[in-house]
Design a protein around this nucleic acid. Structure first.
Lengths: 129, 129
DNA sequence: TTTTTAATGATATATAATATCGTTAAAGGA
DNA sequence: TCCTTTAACGATATTATATATCATTAAAAA
């Protein structure tokens, strides 16, 4: 099962890097289609999935919304503004310890987690006085 | 905006309590429709939402799957088996401290979080030898 | 009992993502 | 360089989950 390095795959990887701010599949498609009007949305979804599998992107599963993709693949979490919807990085000191605790508590093995914080970003907090 | 106590709402609340194990909206509907074949799926969704708003149920947003509902509303988290799909409770000692840390890190206010652990439950781990 | 209107059932629509399928082009060998 | 193989493509259909619309029904209060 070889893996081919298509120009579409390169475009998807580059687009996530350019957008940087945790774009959705839709946003990645919108950027690419400007210069490459023949690209298919299915191709964007497929490449986001395969690049994430291969560890070149990180797939962020957003509860209650479209999934997002991160060009930075390691060791951080995310916080979403409930007002404007923007997603920022959060660096937690002991996020990994949570998995160990959950494993101990439940007897589950191979434990990981998806965590997304929600709150109001400083910009939106100010706009409300 | 009064809130009416309909029999459908009672049925939904009771069904989540009976199922106990974090049912999806679909599963709640399936249980109720056996004895009340005229209930609408939209009504189940609406009541799950309104009961969650009112604090009588907890709405668990599952990343990458149908949302689930919990009759137990306070202070615990959840872990999903990646093999069989069942969802169990996890009790973490310091889950609230995470929010404070995220708030300090980012400057966001009113911070909460959605966290779902994933792993392999003891039953499924055994089946694989 | 009558009035008010929140909630209902039926259905249409929205959103996100995956599946299907005939065609195209990437990669390796001749 | 030119074949051959088949992963990946573009177009589109389908699935899954959830919400919106709207005429009708039934809770709650007068």
């Amino acid at each position: 099962m070889e893996r081919r390095n298509t120009i579409q795959k390169q475009l998807v990887l580059q687009a996530v890097g350019e957008l940087a701010d945790h774009p959705t599949a839709e946003e990645v498609y919108e950027l690419i289609v400007r210069d490459h009007p023949t690209i298919s949305k299915a191709t964007v979804y497929r490449n986001l999935a395969s690049l994430s599998e291969d560890g070149l992107l990180r797939h962020i599963k957003m509860p209650g919304g479209a999934d997002r993709f991160d060009h930075q693949t390691f060791g951080h979490n995310h916080i979403e503004c409930t007002v404007c919807g923007r997603v920022e990085d959060v660096r937690l000191s002991d996020a990994a310890a949570l998995d160990a605790q959950a494993a101990r508590e439940t007897g589950f093995t191979a434990v990981g987690h998806d965590i997304v914080f929600r709150g109001v970003c400083p910009g939106c907090a100010n706009k409300r006085h």
